[in-house]
Design a protein around this nucleic acid. Structure first.
Lengths: 114, 114
DNA sequence: CCTGATTGTTACGGCTCCGTTCCAGTTATC
DNA sequence: GATAACTGGAACGGAGCCGTAACAATCAGG
């Protein structure tokens, strides 16, 4: 159970985390990409392009291109579905898990200073 | 005083807020732009290009371009400093305040569902 | 004054992401 | 089998942001 944040606490948190990311030059992902990555890692598989596009209310090419970019960074992998060769199953990677764990740690750490 | 977030709570929070932003097709500011905007509104004036660049550890043109973009959206205004005409003072706007208040409400609201 | 430092801005080439449209491959239905 | 429906991806032109290198305007110190 999370203690609810006030509006001003939320803004302070957003500012401090953003500042940490910008200064550390680690924020390579856009908000869209980050949300896609978090969906893949926080929600139960399987994840498909179609499903992610519907969930985020964006077009399929947006998902495809985001997967291209994050795949190039090693944060995500694609594999065809053996059951239905039209589908592409998006899979997690160790690097992606570490990336998000580091993000979570940053947020958690910043929250302790507010 | 803010109750510290765990790593997994932080990731869930980030995901849900990102999802709300992407779905609502809100004005899409980059992480850099958002951090600049938050700095202007959360920290005491005066704000200058030079000062923001130093604080965020980015080059001055990054600040100038971000101010151009956000100024076009009405989130921020610039005015020359009468004391030193080299300086440009960045000022808040009603629209910018409302924009951030809405962001804070989104984060706060999402936090109550975790 | 005049030279040098400081401020913010512009210009350039390059890269990424976007929205739309169209396409190849696979499956379902008859 | 033939046709329609579905999947993910490619192609196109357009827009935004980036880093670097310049620039005009302004101030400070001799």
């Amino acid at each position: 159970m999370l203690h609810p944040l006030s509006t001003s606490q939320a803004l302070r948190l957003w500012h401090d985390v953003g500042l940490a990311q910008v200064k550390d030059e680690e924020a390579d992902l856009s908000v869209r990409q980050m949300t896609i990555l978090l969906s893949i890692y926080l929600e139960p598989p399987p994840h498909t392009v179609r499903g992610l596009a519907a969930k985020l209310n964006v077009s399929k090419p947006v998902i495809t291109r985001a997967l291209d970019a994050m795949g190039k960074l090693g944060l995500v992998t694609r594999r065809r579905d053996d059951k239905d060769l039209r589908n592409v199953l998006i899979q997690r990677t160790v690097k992606g898990a570490l990336y998000l764990e580091r993000l979570g740690d940053t947020v958690s750490s910043v929250s302790k200073a507010i």
